[in-house]
Design a protein around this nucleic acid. Structure first.
Lengths: 193, 193, 193, 193
DNA sequence: TATGAATGAGTCTTCATTCAT
DNA sequence: AATGAATGAAGACTCATTCAT
């Protein structure tokens, strides 16, 4: 019994994900989800009390699967340079992703009362920054990266990536420009020598 | 008579600006504006057909007054380095501005069907990039900036600034970190030598 | 303009009164009122935020017109005995009234959180008790009523009347029995001699 | 098996009683009962088709246990005066009872279409009146009570008691005032001499 | 018997938009 | 030009009741 419920919950989350990817966060109603899922009005409430908690579950789910994938990709790396390249590639995939949750995530972030608390986006961003810092530190130690301050560099790269993301979603910056900028970031760290 | 109309229109736009600064774009209703302006429901419709056109006028107005201000500040500069520093300072003010329209602007951008058309954000961004490119080119020509590709550098800086903006609004990045990053950008161009 | 609004407000209150008289308080929905008034859903909200405030206005209105009527009737009295008889008659009218708000008033009372505060029923009851006490005191002073403790007698009579009211509404006690009891109360005070 | 069913039925009735005592009749949903009983939604329907029939069983159960208790108390009486005092005391307990079903009972009564049929409240009230009439008749016959018309007196007392009950629930009349009135009723019959 | 997921009707409430004055 | 009452569509949410297991 509980398994069936789990399956349906998952089905709703996955279907809702598509809706959020398409319409963002703010504009999505329970009705939208109900219709996308082809279930009854009351049925959805059995699983989620409101759009917000549904979206939060979508995010949690997303994170989990993202992590898995990244893990897999990173395991292939043979050097810090390699690792960094993979990281950048990962980011590029994120930035260009067709069915991206990014806009929804932005809108969700804006809707939060206290910017400091319960901020999914924040923790995700900070995790990325931390990972990158470690990566750069290692690269520096191993003599692969010619940088002075790994932490500052990491933050700078993260900020640029965020810039690419928002520009992609807001003004639709071109893939070529994204590539250029990522290459620029890459070369700033690796090709220094 | 026409003057009176112009005045009232301006009054509505300025009052609405406060509302958008406070509540973003998506959440603002005609009712919100009507109440903030203390005018009649029907009265607002005489001037603006819907929230979108009202917001677009707010943006146009914003741009005009921004330009004026920037113009004034830039006129004080005595060198390209100076000019660049002022530019960065201007951006910082933007990023930190309390009554910012930024969130509203993001939400508005997300709501646009075609990312290419009617995009205020885009034209504003591109104007900035263009200005910065010219600036860097001049600085390079005058020997003030030790850079290879002004255009790429300009774009990189603009992207980073966009990153700072969205991070400020989404996860509430601290003023200190913003300062650090801006300094980093500054030093990348100017203090190279 | 304001006058028209006042009129419509009054119309709604009067129409709602009928609905409450018919269906009580608890079971009445905004929809019921909307339909009875033949106005739009949103229209009702222009005048009343919810059923409770609407009912409270119905009560306030009721009290006002009741007071007027009672005033008129009492002005005819030529002695305390007369006055008392009129008072009892007034109560009888109340108890037997076809389109009575009594059930609605009970249900409304039950729905109140704190029995002590904002209790319309209470203030109405206490006003009645006070009036009756004064009346009995006068009658005693003038030698018309052979009673020891006007206050206790007044309260006793009020309690009995409340008993009649609730019995009328809950088990449908007959008019004959109501008459008998009221006569009993009357004779207990007046015909003592 | 049948015994088990009986037990569960009883368990539901007793649990539901608490719910009705707390929330009245009108506001109670099947969900409330299901949750209080910690049984399944469908499970409740196996025993009761709707709130009404459940409440009616609660009432029937209540009556039975009440009768038992009263029986016990009355058996201690050694005179009609005694009996009457115990009766009054019983009523006082009823009026002041914390976990009273009174409000629920009122609401239930109001909800009945035909005031004459299926009325638990009515039969209960009439049983009380009959009992009191017999009691007063006996007291009169034995010379304990100096009254003319036992039936009228009984009805009068019952009406007053109903008044106390409703006043307790609607406006929260004080315990002191209840005591005073009951004493008044007592003295009207017994201490006449 | 018992479970609890699922349904869909019903109510509340808000809002953009219209229109008579 | 301006007002603000009025409308009706749309979304949120709850609950009695059913039904497959």
């Amino acid at each position: 019994m509980g398994e069936k419920v789990e399956l349906k919950r998952k089905y709703i989350v996955e279907t809702a994900r598509k809706v959020f990817a398409q319409k963002g966060y703010t504009g999505v109603t329970m009705k939208d989800v109900v219709e996308a899922c082809n279930i009854s009005r009351g049925g959805l409430y059995l699983y989620f009390d409101n759009i917000r908690s549904l979206f939060e579950e979508v995010l949690a789910n997303e994170e989990a699967s993202d992590d898995q994938e990244v893990e897999k990709d990173l395991s292939k790396a043979s050097s810090d340079t390699d690792l960094f390249a993979i990281f950048i590639k990962e980011q590029k995939k994120d930035i260009l992703q067709k069915e991206s949750l990014l806009v929804a995530l932005y809108e969700y972030s804006f809707s939060l009362e206290d910017k400091k608390k319960n901020n999914f986006y924040k923790s995700q961003y900070e995790a990325g920054e931390l990972f990158l810092t470690r990566l750069l530190e290692n690269g520096k130690k191993h003599g692969e990266f010619a940088i002075e301050e790994p932490k500052k560099e990491a933050r700078h790269i993260m900020i640029s990536i965020e810039g690419l993301k928002i520009l992609r979603q807001s003004i639709g910056i071109s893939e070529r420009q994204i590539n250029e900028e990522l290459l620029y970031l890459l070369s700033g760290i690796v090709a220094e020598e």
